[in-house]
Amino acid sequence: MVVQYLLVALVAFIASMDEQLFGITMLGRPLFTSLFVGLILGDVQQGVIVGAALESMFMGAIMVGAAVPPEVYASGVLGCAFAVITGTGTATAVALALPVSVFLQVWRNFCYAVPGAFACKKIETALANRDLAKANLYHLTIVPLSIGIPSALLVFCSLFFGADLINNALNAIPQFVMDGLNVASGVMVCIGFALLIRTMGDNKLLPWLFLGFIMVIYLKMDVIGVAAAAICVALLLAFREGSSGPQTVAADEEEDF
């Protein structure tokens, strides 16, 4: 049994790094991983049925923009494995996958915040030292492993010690901490934008930022709509006849935000 658990954990390990190492192939999602979980546990049919149910449940869980979606990879593997082992079907799988999914989502946010920032620092230092091999090694390991290893461990421990134990442990985390971490992941996105505003470094462009903001807030446009409108404005600016564009731009760039 332990060998099977290890193999299931290995599936979770690879699946949980789909976004990082494989550029979102969508093959880490429950519908596909259930095939392997079923094979490992010796009941492909049941595995695939549970996988289909989990996939439907997670259908809405998508990654749009910078928001982090609920974790579907390791939690999908765990839910599926547990349902096949106990023979209790999809309801158990869903009930088990949800708390693990919420926890692993918070963990992912943490990985982007701390190991992610750490990885970027290390890469920049390596680049400054002109050590490209080291920079690339940091790039390919730090964040993927800090996501993959805990995900796989959680799956293995849940199977080995029983899911109740793990869920009780997860439930012991105070609700306000989990809520707070979720609130933080909503705010955290602004860091990237703040850096962008700082890098673009031109106060005279700020009205455009507010214009885009207002179009979404008051006119209820979505980002694609605003982008399309902004492309038109940008083209008008770029191709207007007889403008002294280059000079004004040169003057603009002197300003530091």
């Binding site: 923009g65 910078a66 928001a67 909503g186 705010v187 996105v189 602004c190 934008f193 962008l196 505003i197 673009m200 031109d202 462009l205 700020l206 455009w208 930022l209 507010f210 214009l211 885009g212 903001f213 207002i214 179009m215 979404v216 807030i217 446009m221 979505d222 980002v223 605003v226 982008a227 409108a229 902004a230 492309i231 404005v233 940008a234 083209l235 600016l237 770029a238 564009g245 004004t248 731009v249 603009d252």
Partner: peptide, 20 residues
């Protein structure tokens, strides 16, 4: 310059749409 305008407008829209 036009790319800067485009970028800024879209950043403004994304702040509104994504930061919660």
């Amino acid at each position: 310059h036009a790319a800067g305008v485009l970028g800024m407008t879209v950043i403004g829209a994304m702040i509104a749409a994504q930061v919660s």
